[in-house]
């Protein structure tokens, strides 16, 4: 299957994970994960609640160390890299956290400005212009001087996306884009993700269990199974729904409804 080819192939893709086992102490969350993500792909991590989707994303970001296994970016090992090298990778990542995670003591423009100040040599006026542009891209033109507490949850998420995009990252990680959003806002966020992938060629790693979202955006998806504690399927979600060998995967992608074949 896909997993076995991934496990044996040399890691050259943009993101490659080999035999990753995630554990909290003695408690194994997921074992033997191996997969590749190519540039420009929208890679969805799916699975039931509490199966370790967000944990996998945190591993990919280096926020948690793997119990065993390795993570590669562009063929280079991230897991065994030094602290300095890892920090240099962070510049190429953008992260949209579940609630947006905007820094609450700063305005939206200041939120976006912080990574720019950190990593670019731009002057204050230029940074302000870039921040306004990023906000305009997510439909928040004119909200530069608002504080996160003054805008709605959906707007906070979009502002979080604007901040994640501040440095034009190569890879954008998105944690539960639809959580807490109404169907229309959620759809708009999906459209935004697709648009950014088309226009900027950004690779997306999205954690979600929203079926509508998965079918709309994913070019490839991995299913984390709670029972066997490993990935039971990798591939385009529609193929998995119709042709997966694993009934749990088909059931998940059909909301547990009966199959009519």
């Amino acid at each position: 299957m896909t997993e076995t080819t991934a496990a044996s192939a040399p890691p050259t893709d943009q993101i490659s994970v080999r035999n990753l086992t995630m554990a909290y102490g003695d408690f194994v969350v997921m074992r033997d994960l191996s997969f590749d993500v190519s540039p420009g792909e929208v890679f969805v991590i799916m699975g039931g609640s509490g199966c370790g989707k967000s944990t996998l994303m945190r591993h990919l970001l280096g926020m948690i160390e793997p119990a065993t296994g390795e993570i590669f970016y562009g063929g280079e090992s991230f897991t065994s890299a030094s602290r300095e090298v890892r920090e240099s990778y962070l510049r190429r990542f953008g992260v949209l956290f579940q609630g947006g995670a905007l820094w609450s003591s700063m305005t939206l423009a200041e939120n976006i400005a912080l990574p720019l100040e950190e990593y670019t040599g731009l002057g204050a006026a230029e940074i302000r212009d870039v921040a306004s542009l990023k906000l305009a891209l997510v439909g928040l033109r004119g909200f530069e001087d608002y504080y996160p507490s003054e805008i709605s949850g959906g707007m906070r998420k979009r502002a979080g996306l604007a901040r994640a995009m501040a440095l034009d990252p190569e890879i954008l990680f998105v944690d539960e884009p639809s959580a807490g959003l109404d169907p229309i806002s959620s759809r708009l966020l999906d459209d935004l993700i697709l648009e950014l992938r088309e226009s900027l060629g950004t690779t997306f790693v999205v954690v979600t269990h929203e079926l509508a979202s998965i079918f709309a955006i994913a070019s490839k998806a991995i299913f984390l199974d709670t029972v066997t504690r490993t990935a039971t399927a990798i591939g385009p979600p529609i193929d998995l729904r119709d042709h997966s060998q694993d009934p749990a995967v088909r059931a998940f992608l059909r909301r547990g409804e009966e199959e009519h074949e």
Binding site: R91, F97, Q98, L102, W103, E118
Partner: peptide, 15 residues
């Protein structure tokens, strides 16, 4: 800030 993941956001920004 930990609960709202603002600290994680700082870390992933390299701060």
């Amino acid at each position: 800030m930990r609960v709202t993941e603002e600290i994680d956001a700082l870390r992933t920004t390299g701060i």
